[in-house]
Structure formats: C-alpha cells, structure tokens
Amino acid sequence: MSGDTFVLHKGGCHCGAVRFQVFAPSVLHVFDCNCSICVKKGNMHFIVPKSRFELIKGEDNIEVYTFNTHKAKHTFCKTCGVQSFYSPRSNPDGYGVAPHCLDPGTVEKIEVETVDGQNWEKFMKTSDISKYSKT
C-alpha cells in the first residue's frame, strides 16, 4: 500500500452514539498540538476537507465547545464526552479527525507532526498545515 492510497475509514465516539466515515489516506499525517485545549484533551488529529467527511449518525447527540476566538468548534458526544472530530481554527472548511476514534483495519501507518499551538499565529505563518485539507 502507498501513503497516497485513499480508503474509507469509519469511526465514532466511545458509546457509539456518534458515527462518521471519512475518505482519507491509509497513511495518516497526524498533528500533535501543544495548545491549551489539545494538551488537556491529549488531542491528536488529521485534517480532511468537509467534502470527504460524512456524519452517519448522532448529529442530535453532539455538543459544541468554543473559546478565545470561537473559530474552532470542538464537538463532542454529549453521552460519553469523546471528541472524535472537530472543526479546527486552522482549517475551518475541514475537520480534524482523531485517529484513535477510527475503527481498526484501515490505517496502514500514522506519521506525527508537532504543531506549536501555544504560538499559533507565528506557527501558521511558517507552516503549510492547510495543504492537508485540500480536496
């Protein structure tokens, strides 16, 4: 398999109330961010455009948390509290998907990139993070 091979990944929250599917590479480029909320949640995610993401069930079971600029929409299951995806500030036209919330069997490998979310504005000026949400 190649890292450019796209597959249909399925996943969801812990209790199963929220389920989604996402068309993404089998080799995932995952961001490990050190911003205040990602550190508290242990959040690691990969970016996909909204066109490659489909919420299968649970829209009525999703809560949204925002803070600071209120651009990022931190979604989580109101039953179990798990955030399996969210709308990141860096890519408001995409989703950040938690690889640990994917069902087993479709991920070939995970490559991790550190993101300096504590210095987000400076990091975004020098980063090409948005290339990961292009269709």
Rank of each mutant, 00 (worst) to 15 (best):
M1F: 14
S2N: 08
G3C: 09
D4Q: 12
D4H: 12
V7W: 03
L8D: 10
L8H: 14
H9D: 06
H9Q: 07
C13V: 05
C13A: 01
H14V: 11
G16M: 12
A17D: 05
V18Y: 03
V18S: 06
R19M: 03
R19K: 11
F20S: 02
Q21R: 15
F23E: 15
F23W: 12
F23I: 14
S26D: 10
S26K: 06
L28W: 03
F31R: 02
F31H: 08
F31G: 03
D32Q: 08
C33D: 02
C33M: 03
N34I: 05
N34R: 04
K40C: 07
N43V: 04
H45Y: 09
F46C: 00
F46H: 07
I47L: 04
I47P: 01
V48I: 08
P49N: 04
K57T: 15
G58Y: 09
G58F: 09
E59T: 01
E59L: 02
D60P: 11
I62S: 13
E63H: 15
V64L: 08
Y65W: 11
Y65I: 09
T66D: 15
F67Y: 03
T69I: 03
H70I: 07
K73E: 14
K73W: 12
H74E: 03
T75K: 13
F76N: 05
C77H: 05
K78L: 07
T79A: 06
G81K: 05
G81E: 02
Q83V: 07
Y86S: 08
Y86L: 12
S90N: 09
N91M: 07
N91K: 04
P92G: 01
G94Y: 00
G96K: 00
P99H: 07
L102R: 04
D103G: 06
G105R: 11
G105V: 15
T106R: 10
V107P: 03
K109N: 12
K109H: 08
E111A: 02
T114S: 15
T114R: 11
T114P: 11
T114V: 13
D116K: 13
D116A: 12
G117R: 00
Q118T: 15
W120M: 08
E121I: 10
M124Y: 10
K125R: 10
T126V: 14
S127Q: 00
D128L: 03
I129C: 02
S130V: 12
Y132R: 02
Y132F: 08
S133P: 01
K134R: 13
T135P: 15
T135N: 14
